[in-house]
C-alpha cells in the first residue's frame, strides 16, 4: 500500500529526494512571501513569510495522512500535541491561578502579577488546598489522599448538574411534549373543508405534533431495558429506533456541511493566503 515500507530503518533515496524537494519548495515560498510582503518592515515581512509558509506546510503535512502515515504527518502531529499541551498548561496557570486565585488570596501576589486585588475569600484557599492534595498522587505513599478532592469534585458537579438537567432538559422537555394533537380544532367539517398542505396549515401542524409525540414515546420505549421487546412493545421500540436513525441521518447531513466548510476554509487559506492565486 505504501511506498518505501520496506525501508523502515534507513530512508530510501526516494524519501531523501522528497525531503529535499519539500525543503526547497519551503525556502522558495518563504523568500517569495518575504519579498512580496505588505508589512512595513523587512523583518516583519520575513517573519510573516515564514509563518504563512510554515502554516501551509503543516496543513499539507496533516492532509498527507489521507494518503498514508508518513514522516511529515508524524512531525506535524508531534508538534501539535506538544505545543497544545504546553499552551493549555500556561493558560491554566494564567487564567486559573493568576486570574482567579491570586486576586482573592494575596495583595502582594496581585501586585506582582499586575492583577487588581479583589477581596480575601477563604473559599479560594480551600480550592487551593484541594489542588495541592490532588498533586499528592505523585507521591507513591500519599497517593490515596488525592481521592478526596476528586470525590468532592465529582460529587458536587453531579449534584449540581442533576437538578439543573432534571429541570431544563427533562421537566421542560416533558412539558414541551404536551402539544395539541389537533391544532386549532374546530370540528371535522371545518378540518376537511380547509384541508391544505401549507406549512402553517392545520393538517401539517397537527401531523408535525403527532410525529413529535409518537417519536418521543417510541424513543422512550426503546430505552426500556428490563422488559422484553415483543409484540406491541417491540413494535413501538422498533419504531423508536427508526426515528432515532432518521434523526441521526439529518444530523449527519448537517455535519457533512460543516466538514466541507472546514475543507473550503483550509483550501482558501492555501490558495489565498499562501499562493495568492484567488
Amino acid at each position: 500500500m505504501a511506498t518505501g515500507n520496506g525501508n523502515r530503518k534507513s530512508p530510501s533515496n526516494a524519501v531523501k529526494i522528497i525531503l529535499v524537494i519539500v525543503a526547497v519548495v519551503f525556502l522558495i515560498s518563504w523568500i517569495s512571501k518575504a519579498t512580496t510582503g505588505m508589512a512595513d518592515s523587512t523583518w516583519l515581512n520575513i517573519r510573516d513569510g515564514f509563518l504563512i509558509t510554515f502554516a501551509a506546510f503543516l496543513t499539507l503535512s496533516i492532509f498527507s495522512f489521507l494518503y498514508n502515515d508518513n514522516p511529515f504527518y508524524k512531525f506535524a502531529e508531534h508538534l501539535y500535541v506538544g505545543v497544545s499541551a504546553a499552551y493549555w498548561m500556561c493558560l491554566g496557570f494564567w487564567s486559573i491561578i493568576v486570574g482567579n486565585f491570586v486576586p482573592h488570596a494575596s495583595k502582594t501576589l496581585s501586585t506582582f502579577f499586575k492583577v487588581p486585588f479583589q477581596e480575601y475569600s477563604w473559599f479560594y484557599y480551600v480550592a487551593f488546598a484541594f489542588g495541592v492534595i490532588l498533586l499528592m498522587r505523585l507521591l507513591p505513599k500519599a497517593g490515596w489522599i488525592a481521592r478526596w478532592p476528586l470525590a468532592v469534585i465529582i460529587g458536587t458537579t453531579a449534584g449540581f448538574n442533576l437538578s439543573r438537567y432534571l429541570h431544563s432538559d427533562f421537566m421542560s422537555q416533558v412539558g414541551n411534549t404536551f402539544q395539541p394533537l389537533f391544532v386549532d380544532w374546530q370540528g371535522a367539517g371545518h378540518f376537511f373543508s380547509n384541508l391544505s398542505l401549507a406549512a402553517d396549515g392545520q393538517l401539517v401542524m397537527s401531523a408535525g405534533n403527532w410525529i413529535v409525540v409518537v417519536g418521543v414515546l417510541c424513543g422512550l420505549v426503546y430505552f426500556f431495558f428490563s422488559k422484553e421487546h415483543k409484540g406491541m412493545f417491540g413494535a413501538a421500540s422498533r419504531l423508536g429506533i427508526w426515528i432515532l436513525m432518521i434523526t441521526f441521518g439529518a444530523s449527519f447531513g448537517y455535519t457533512v456541511m460543516g466538514r466541507i466548510s472546514l475543507l473550503v476554509g483550509r483550501i482558501t487559506f492555501l490558495f489565498d493566503d499562501w499562493l495568492s492565486i484567488l
Binding site: 495522512f65 504527518y73 508524524k74 506535524a76 508531534h78 501539535y80 500535541v81 499541551a85 493549555w88
Partner: peptide
C-alpha cells in the same frame, strides 16, 4: 496526551 481537541485526535490517530 493533550487537552486540545484536534491535537488529541492527531495524537491518537498516530
Amino acid at each position: 496526551v493533550t487537552s486540545s481537541q484536534f491535537a488529541y485526535v492527531a495524537g491518537v490517530m498516530g
